[in-house]
Amino acid sequence: MLIPHPLLGLRDAQEFTYLGDAALLDRPSPEGEGAEAAFCDYVFLRGNPAGVHRELWFHEQGDRSWLVVTRNTLTHEILGAELASKVAKALKGAAE
């Protein structure tokens, strides 16, 4: 597969390490009653859809960026790739 790195252009998937569901960006709050249950879901429950999936890839053999790659797991079509730090910042901005 080829991954369109937002800074470096098309890069071979062999340069990356795969992590999975980009929901991992949304770490729950450690405060409050439901924290343990929320962490339980966060750690153990992941989406694994047959279709469009947002997932985390680490450019380990490259510039060490974490990317959020939108990929169709059925066709391997890649619909986009963003810097995870940007996505995470936007997520935090929306939460505040």
Partner: peptide, 18 residues
């Protein structure tokens, strides 16, 4: 060594980019 570094990059970029 590699895993800790990868996890620290994850924490830096994905969890606490601020």
């Amino acid at each position: 060594a590699g895993l800790v570094y990868r996890n620290m990059e994850f924490a830096r970029q994905c969890l606490w980019p601020e």
